[in-house]
Design a protein around this nucleic acid. Sequence first.
DNA 1: ATGGTTGTCATACAA
Length: 271
Amino acid sequence: MQLVVSTWNINSVRLRIDQVRRFLETVRPDILCLQETKCPDDKFPLKELQSYGYPFVVHIGQKGYNGVAILSRYPFLETGAMQMCERPDARHISITLAKEAKAAAGLTLHNFYVPAGGDIPDTTLNDKFAHKLQFLAEMRRWGERHRKGGAPGILVGDLNVAPLEHDVWSHKQLLNVVSHTPVETETLETLRQEAEWVDGMRVLRPEPEKVYSWWSYRSPDWAAANKGRRLDHIWLTPDIAPTLKSMSVTSETRGWDRPSDHAPVTAVLEL
DNA sequence: ATGGTTGTCATACAA
């Protein structure tokens, strides 16, 4: 069977509900993971999203900030939500697919939203950067424990780090810019490799090809300037990595009216 | 070196 999984930082699910529908109708993923829903749970547009063909939905949110959700065509065996950094932030949610998902039954999917980290890449001057590094350190410890279970899985999300040289428009010019500093890129690569996650995009589109999933709102004419970064990721456990058939960025969404600054990333697996 | 935009909530704050 084919399993299509997408991840998208939507930057307000209520404001862009029509864009979610348009994306789902076009790409037709089996599972869509959202970040930055910016929506408390009692205001989450559950029925609308279900009516688009995704009856199985989990979400956690807060007023105005953060928030993650997973929409699925298949039911769940179980769900989870980790509290990170001892904060109330809604930055992780997970599902394990039930037997109705056929060959994907038992697959666990983790959806993360890593803190952006503010503007100054210095933990003594910027608490938000310290928070980001603490979050990554917790992901690292969790990943080590998690892999000991050995279950097949997928980790997706807005990780707010562009780890490789060709994940940004200018490696040199971004070395001191939050999202591409050595402490962030090395930490993310280390935690990924220690837990044996495979970076899906770079299996099929290796460096030196440039791949981006985010273009700043502050840059006018984003498409012509193309000063992007690859902040959104889909990682696979080694057992299912050979089933990966395609990886894509739906960059058209960035050109839609009132867009998210992130574009969706999609993986196709043949399980 | 600087400022550039957006969403939420209604005044800064986070991204």
